[in-house]
Design a protein around this nucleic acid. Structure first.
Lengths: 329, 329
DNA sequence: TTGTATGCGTTATCAT
DNA sequence: ATGATAACGCATACAA
């Protein structure tokens, strides 16, 4: 194990000179710089992160808490965060919710014990109920897809805007009697998508009788099929349905075809999330791609700002989804 | 920042006694044990991992190289590995292939620099060509889903066995004229699934003319549809098709229905991988679930054996997939 | 069963 | 522009 002393000896300079040459924290003559660089290359020297961490009390490690890493979305957020972490000479220490009984507190506890420089907490779903949080975030932190406290910067997808765009798109395709298969009322993402959708219809001057044109599913394909039945049985003249996610859109499309409806000519359907199957569903599904990688990047960028002692501005970021038009609409 | 000295002072004992009480490496009287525990609780002491790492030259960090973390499979393997890591008081340091231009060497370099105790390298796909590897694995390592060298333990799914079971299942359902839509010849997983399938038919005494009953797709849904056309145009009496993955199975099912075939009565189809859409495809797809979490757990377990200086036995593990029977067969 | 003292490899303070 | 040295917090060899 070659240390900084070996380098110093080989280069014929003092330890502190080598250290400063590495950090650039004080002027070094070009000549000694070269000698040091040679010695380092020759010996294959690598600074010991543990020693550095001990001395500087910063670990170069970012804790990443993912509620459920098994969920595709988390993986892509992590991917974005990792990129930014690397650019900041840090790396991610990973921790998944299930290991901690989905308890954010104990996860944070664990990460603090490891002396992470900061924490990114990414929740898979936004619920009406905020995550429990007794532990004090005395480590610089940001949250993704959930909001815990004013003092903690957060990043989330702009579901309201997605809902708006869904309506606008459908109307531009000629739809006039629009309906919605929403998700559970507990799920904020779905409720915001619905709110945005409603708002846009209003702006277009289209009457929207929410009492009869909105049903709630549970985000499963099966519930999408049931939702479609309920909607069409009550209002056969519906010409477009916005589903709060792709699973329900998929189920709705299946059922619509079973009922002999032509898609998209007689009925247009839009989903949400851009799940992998959306592109090759028997009728490819028009949907919205979440800005996942960007969420990861943005959250990490904000975190490094906080670690730096700065207050990220804005401290609450909304990222827009992208409409992907396919055959179902 | 409370240190071991603070604890020692509070408990009225020496630093080394506290250290030994924590590690259990030498006998301590119950009385002092209690005093120490109290002091620790009182002060909220947490050992500093950096100091410990510096002293012991082990970091408690396992490097995890995932070829593509964005691929669902990687996430579940990681999940399994994380569980075992936690049980061994270690955690995962993450690194994804894209960040390193998919170059295993530079990823290993990066991880070694961070002084990881061991490395798990998980490739997403097994290719006929082994991954490049110039860097010497002088850190304890295991590979997942790829094989690099005899000296490095590896874990992989038993694709041959999956192929066998696919054939057995189809035959038990009454199929007699079976065909295969395989993946690219470069992809070992597909080739082994095909080999197992062929072997089982042989065992069943069913003639299988590979020249006419096997086509190769590119793992996309679209190629599954094309494959089905090619197969049925040449041999209309085919009554079952084994597809090397779910994407192709999905495409094949779509096309079969377009051709007016009844599934499963006239044509049985089996996929592979148990992608999420398989369960709610218009005709739910019979498929094989990969032992992903188990691959993660097993690889981590083997790694800790190696870190311990033991040679895991066996050092090359094959894990069986599980058949999931759904409507398509 | 317990205590003392040294050193792990860095960075940073103080000199020169 | 460069050096000597203390200190970060812990584990362990050696003593008692």
């Amino acid at each position: 194990m070659v240390t900084i002393r070996d380098v110093a000896a080989a280069a014929g300079v003092s330890v502190s000179t080598v250290s400063h040459a590495l950090s650039g924290k004080r002027p070094i003559s070009q000549a000694t710089k070269d000698k040091i660089r040679n010695a380092i290359d020759q010996l294959g020297y690598e600074p010991n992160p543990a020693a550095r961490a001990l001395r500087t009390t910063t670990s170069g490690v970012i804790g990443f808490f993912a509620f459920d890493i098994t969920e595709m979305f988390a993986a892509r957020i992590i991917h974005g965060a990792e990129k930014v972490a690397r650019e900041n000479n840090s790396y991610l220490l990973f921790t998944s919710g299930v290991e901690f009984g989905n308890d954010l507190d104990s996860a944070i506890e664990f990460l603090r014990r490891r002396r992470v420089d900061g924490i990114i907490a990414a929740y898979g779903v936004r619920q009406a109920v905020r995550p429990q949080m007794r532990a004090v975030f005395d480590v610089p932190s940001v949250t993704v897809n959930t909001f815990i406290h004013e003092s903690i910067p957060s990043v989330q997808p702009d579901d309201f805007e997605g809902g708006r765009q869904a309506a606008l798109h459908l109307v531009s395709r000629g739809a006039r009697k629009l309906a919605v298969i929403a998700g559970p009322e507990m799920r904020l993402a779905s409720m915001e998508r619905l709110a945005g959708f409603t708002k846009a219809l209003e702006e277009c001057g289209i009457v929207f009788d929410a009492a009869h044109l909105v049903v709630h599913g549970d985000f499963s394909a099966e519930s999408g099929a049931r939702g479609l039945d309920a909607l069409l049985d009550a209002s056969p003249d519906i010409d477009a349905i916005f589903c709060a996610n792709d699973y329900m859109a998929a189920g709705a499309i299946n059922r619509a075809q079973e009922r002999g409806l032509k898609i998209p000519s007689e009925l247009r359907i839009v989903g949400y999330d851009d799940r992998e199957f959306a592109s090759f569903w028997p009728i490819p599904i028009t949907t919205f791609a979440l800005p996942l990688e960007q969420m990861g990047e943005t959250s990490a960028t904000m975190l490094f700002a906080r670690i730096d002692g700065r207050v990220p501005d804005p401290s609450r970021v909304m990222l827009e989804p992208s409409l992907i038009v396919r055959k179902s609409s």
